[in-house]
């Protein structure tokens, strides 16, 4: 049953991506990209990553859609046909995709409990995390306690991006007033 649901959501995801690929209207593409984010949040739930699903639904489907809609509102909505001949990008994409598929061939099967990733620190966090940090949610325990400095670095990235956005857009408003 779980496999069937996963298969259904993955095919919806593929269909949405193909639909976005064919679109030339910016607003519709942004809305469908929001749908794509929401569907991928569904896949995250099916793969037991509930924290990631929550964040993706809020940030990917919510904030990202609003940002891109605001960008379209300030620029132009319609787009022309693709400018490059689609042949060369198609070849590049096919070759890259084939190389990546070749790379998956010696990966452990999906859901295999014996995969190398499940033999390293992951089980330690699951065993010791709740006792060491007092948080039953191991993802929160790792994020805020074991790897708290990484999260601090992440907020630095967000601060830098915010400064960049403010610097870019503040200059624009002053420029408009001058003209």
């Amino acid at each position: 049953m779980e496999t069937l649901i996963l298969l259904a959501v993955l095919s919806f995801l593929g269909l949405t991506a193909l639909a976005i690929l064919r679109l030339r209207d910016g607003v519709t593409a942004v809305m469908l990209a929001g749908l794509y984010s929401l569907l991928s949040a569904g896949v995250f739930v099916l793969m037991d990553a509930v924290d990631v699903a929550f964040t993706e639904a809020a940030v990917g489907a919510g904030i990202s859609t609003v940002l891109l809609l605001a960008t379209l509102h300030r620029t132009s909505r319609m787009t022309h046909r693709p400018t490059h001949t689609p042949l060369i990008p198609l070849i590049v994409v096919m070759v890259t995709g084939a190389a990546l598929v070749y790379g998956t061939l010696d990966m452990p099967a999906y859901g295999d409990p014996q995969a190398p990733i499940h033999q390293h620190v992951g089980p330690d966090y699951l065993r010791d995390g709740p006792n060491t940090t007092g948080v039953p949610n191991v993802v929160t325990a790792v994020l805020a306690s074991y790897r708290g400095y990484d999260t601090l670095g992440e907020t630095t990235v967000v601060l830098t991006a915010a400064i960049g956005v403010l610097a870019l857009l503040r200059g624009r408003r002053q420029g408009k007033e001058r003209s």
Partner: peptide
């Protein structure tokens, strides 16, 4: 399930929205 990829991707989502915002600007 293994919590480690979840933590990495939580960080990546937030960094992703930061780059999207910068690109939009």
């Amino acid at each position: 399930s293994n919590p480690l990829p979840h933590v990495l991707i939580l960080t990546a989502i937030v960094v992703g929205i930061a780059t999207t915002a910068l690109a939009a600007a």
